[in-house]
Computed example of a mutant assay.
Amino acid sequence: MENNTVSFYFNLTMFVKIGHYHYPAFVFCLLLYSFIVSANFVIILVILRERTLHEPMYMFIALLSVNSLYGSAGFFPRFLMDLLSDSHLISRPACFTQIYVIYTYASYELTILSIMAYDRYVAVCHPLHYHRKMTSKMVFNLAAVAWVFPAFGLIACISLSARLPLCGNEIQKVFCANWNVVKLSCVTTVANNIVGMLLTIATVFLPLFYVLYTYLRIVIVCWKKSAEFKGKVLQSCLPHMVSFVIYSITGFCDIALSRYDVQDINPFVAVILSLEFVVIPPVLNPLVYGLKLPEIRRHILRMLPSYKQ
């Protein structure tokens, strides 16, 4: 029976560290999930309804909100169930499905932020050619690449992990993570490490350096322009820069935690760090774009009954 448990189930051990805070944590996370769904749905609805927002920048913002809903759906329902449960076992198929959803969510976030950076780069550095370059077909192709490439790359990576014979079943997280599973392997994981490194370079470091490059070019162009021009550029680029910085910090925290022995970290801090990148971006993205971009903010306010009166 024990061998079957090790073979077919993983135990998410970090829930023990939450202790007597299970019920308050459940209520708080349920409200948080409700806010994520509502806020991102409002952003998507506003952009789809208003024809004036059918522009590349706003369509990419809608994609970002769709990704937030996707990633949250892959994390919160199972997490909320585990908060109320005494047992935190998860089957292997369910674990690898969760890994796939959360990791594709993480990859999509970076690839979408990258194509948003390209959109801002063209708009600021090549304004006369913007409508020629950012056609509906180009927007569709960029979105397709942003979604398709990480999906296939992660299928290859997770397939390798799913075939590993494991000598344990304890995952020191509140959700399934690929590296934590690989560490349980009874055999060498050189192939997993190589594929994982190549995938990390393609889906993390290349988008990261590309975003930094585009904003360096934008800064160079703005340097010689008027204060009014700089203000307009800052207004359109600031939400994207905030989203990019937030996601980079939360992603780094999760990667660092995966490579570190959580036994040496304060239990409360370990849980918070493990939740950051699946909670903070979906919460802050609709706030950042809804509050900072006047076009979206105005249409959201028009939806409120008090504003109409």
Rank of each mutant, 00 (worst) to 15 (best):
Y307Q: 00
V269F: 11
V195R: 04
T200G: 08
A117H: 01
H88P: 00
E109K: 07
S274G: 14
N178A: 02
K173R: 11
A202T: 02
K17P: 04
S243M: 09
D82C: 11
V148K: 03
H22F: 06
Y103L: 12
A227D: 06
Y307H: 03
F152V: 14
F152W: 11
Q172F: 07
M81N: 11
S185L: 15
H131S: 15
D254Y: 11
L30W: 10
H240M: 10
Q263T: 15
S38N: 09
Y260G: 06
F41M: 12
T97V: 08
P267Q: 13
L164D: 07
S87A: 03
S68N: 15
R132K: 05
W223V: 09
I112M: 01
I218Y: 00
N3K: 14
H20Q: 08
L113A: 14
S274F: 09
E295Y: 05
K17C: 12
N11T: 04
C167R: 12
I18F: 10
I155G: 03
I115D: 15
H131P: 07
W223Y: 13
C186L: 03
N67H: 10
L273C: 05
K225I: 00
S258E: 13
N3R: 08
F149I: 13
V278D: 03
K232F: 11
A123H: 06
S7A: 10
C237E: 08
M134C: 02
L113C: 12
F35V: 10
R298L: 08
V288N: 14
P93H: 00
L198T: 15
F268C: 08
D119V: 13
S114I: 00
L45R: 06
V148Q: 05
R217F: 04
H240A: 08
S72F: 05
E228Q: 11
P281W: 01
W179H: 13
E2S: 15
M59H: 11
E295L: 07
L154Q: 12
L160H: 00
V283Q: 06
Y70M: 03
T111M: 13
F149Q: 05
L154F: 14
C237K: 03
N180P: 01
L304F: 13
K133L: 03
T13Q: 11
I99R: 00
M116T: 05
M197A: 07
M303Q: 06
N193Y: 01
V279R: 05
S65G: 11
Y130D: 04
P93F: 00
S87L: 03
N141Y: 05
L208Q: 10
P281H: 00
L64C: 13
L164E: 09
D264C: 13
T52I: 04
L284A: 08
L69W: 12
M138P: 00
F229K: 01
Q263I: 13
F229D: 02
R298S: 14
